[in-house]
Design a binder for these strands. Structure first.
Ligand SMILES: [Zn+2]
Length: 490
DNA sequence: AGCCTTTGACCAGCG
DNA sequence: TCGCTGGTCAAAGGC
């Protein structure tokens, strides 16, 4: 049976901290990861099998020692892809390095596809030192939350990564009821079957790292799974485990087809473990079918189907949520832009009025001066400085820039400079060519996002400095142009 | 029987 | 060269 994994359980005595118990919640992580993987990453995807059955005893310990050899890190197989997954676990040992912060960040808009290829696994990896804005949770009611790391984080050299630039990380969180203290190790199902070939305690990490190879002998895809934290949520009485999954190499085949009905009499609910989230015809299930509490151990064909459907359901849910988040963000962006626009127009208007007054004054002065002896160049310079002062442009650099832009703006300003300036839609102001719209909320990772001109986009806090500078800039140049044109007729 | 996990040994890279 | 570290092997055993 291709694909059947009835996998296994772990021995009762030995703990397998590496893989958390994912019993009922499996579909979610699986789908989530899968979907990410399927969207454009050359990287491979994979999943451990989640076998289930009954809870298995697990002790906390264990880290066996692995040693090594060959192809370690034959990175030729393709880019690494890292996924962080949190699953419920029964083993306590709470969260030492839990990145609680990671899951408390505001949601940010980002497509799943973008999530992939952008993040460095290890940025996240050690859970350490990761600027919180880099991740955002996408909550899935009844299932858990998935956190994606912003693609933007990749672009910043600030966080060097030992992994290929196109790797990526995802945090998936979901909790589950206590499973009597012993956790069943259940690797995340990502559509592929995996065989564990080693486990090793890694220095500096609280939990051991497990090594998996794709069960397909022809395939060289591998993955490493390591728990970042385990914690017991007192409020929900559920255990949550966060795992970091690093994928290496590409699968040379498609995900094993779900062998739905197959299940062992022993009660292994393995249907889910090897089922490809996408290979199942998607029929919506009632929400109850994906109830995390649903026991997976007593797998039946019907349940297997349900589980499969649940995956699809989850996938759709994820997509839907992503879409909603995006829409919300777009709306917010819209409002923000309109606000900004109004602000700018107002400011421009004010500045222009000031400029006009200045120019008028200048003209009068000029007229007077003209009647007497005059020296054009000096006068112009003087005038310009006055205008500048009048506009309150204090930034010398901006001023210099205004001069440079003078010609450019001039053609748009005279004689209806007023209109032309007003018609300069804020949106037309050059902004970072960032695919993600600048918004009131810093789209994930925005905190590290600088616009091309060096301005820092401060979410929800007024106008970006650069933008403001630009505005003043253009206004100043407009005023300058206007003054020049008015004076032209000497 | 087949496939899985476990786990100590082994190996390569590095400082 | 030595010791450490991380990745893999492969025997043993479980389901
Ligand atoms: Zn494979």
């Amino acid at each position: 049976m291709p694909g059947l994994s009835v996998s296994t359980s772990t021995s009762s005595t030995s703990p397998t901290p590496v893989v958390a118990d994912c019993r009922s919640a499996e579909p979610s992580p699986a789908v989530a990861v899968k979907s990410l993987l399927s969207m454009g990453t050359p990287a491979s995807a994979g999943s451990a099998t989640c076998s289930s059955t009954s809870p298995r005893p697990q002790s906390t310990s264990a880290s066996s020692r692995l040693s090594s050899s060959e192809d370690a890190r034959t990175s030729d197989e393709g880019p690494d892809l890292s996924v962080v997954v949190a699953m419920p676990s029964s083993s306590l040992r709470a969260a030492q390095n839990s990145n609680a912060a990671l899951s408390q960040l505001p949601a940010a808009p980002m497509s799943m596809s973008r999530a992939v290829n952008m993040i460095s696994p290890m940025q996240f990896g050690a859970t350490m030192g990761i600027p919180s804005p880099l991740v955002s949770p996408m909550v899935s009611p009844g299932i858990g939350a998935m956190t994606l790391i912003s693609p933007l984080s990749l672009a910043t050299p600030a966080i060097p990564s030992p992994y290929p630039a196109d790797s990526s990380s995802v945090v998936h969180t979901h909790s589950m009821a206590e499973d009597d203290g012993k956790s069943t190790r259940r690797p995340l199902d990502d559509g592929y079957k995996w065989r564990k070939y080693g486990q090793k305690h890694v220095k500096g990490h609280a939990f051991p790292r497990a090594y998996y190879k794709c069960s397909n002998t022809e395939c060289k895809a591998k993955k490493q799974v390591e728990i970042l934290s385990k914690e017991f949520d007192e409020t929900t009485k559920q255990h949550v485990v966060k795992e970091h999954v690093l994928y290496r190499g590409k699968h040379s085949h498609s995900p094993p087809h779900s062998r739905s009905a197959h299940h062992s009499a022993t009660g292994h609910a393995s249907a889910l473990s090897s089922a490809s989230p996408f290979s199942v015809a998607g029929v919506h299930l009632s929400a109850s079918s994906m109830n995390p509490q649903m026991p997976m151990s007593s797998a039946l064909p019907a349940q297997a189907q349900q589980a499969a459907n649940a995956q699809v359901y989850y996938q759709q849910l994820q997509a839907q949520q992503a879409q909603q988040a995006q829409q919300a963000q777009q709306q917010a962006n819209m409002q923000y832009r309109m606000q900004q626009q109004q602000q700018q127009q107002l400011l421009q208007l004010q500045l222009l009025q000031q400029a006009q007054a200045q120019v008028q004054a200048q003209l009068q002065a000029q007229a007077q001066a003209r009647t007497q002896a005059h020296s054009p160049p000096q006068f112009q310079a003087q005038q310009h400085m006055q205008i500048q002062a009048g506009l309150g442009v204090q930034n010398q650099a901006a001023h210099a820039h205004a001069l440079q832009l003078h010609n450019h703006h001039q053609q748009h300003m005279h004689p209806n400079y007023n209109l032309s300036i007003m018609s300069q839609h804020p949106a037309s102001i050059p902004l970072p060519s960032n695919p993600l719209p600048s918004a009131p909320y810093p789209a994930v990772g925005a905190k590290r996002t600088l616009d091309q001109s060096g301005g820092v986009l401060m979410p929800g806090v007024g106008m970006p400095a650069a933008k403001r500078a630009h505005l003043l800039d253009s206004t100043a140049s407009a005023a300058y142009a206007m003054a020049s044109s008015l004076m032209a007729p000497q």
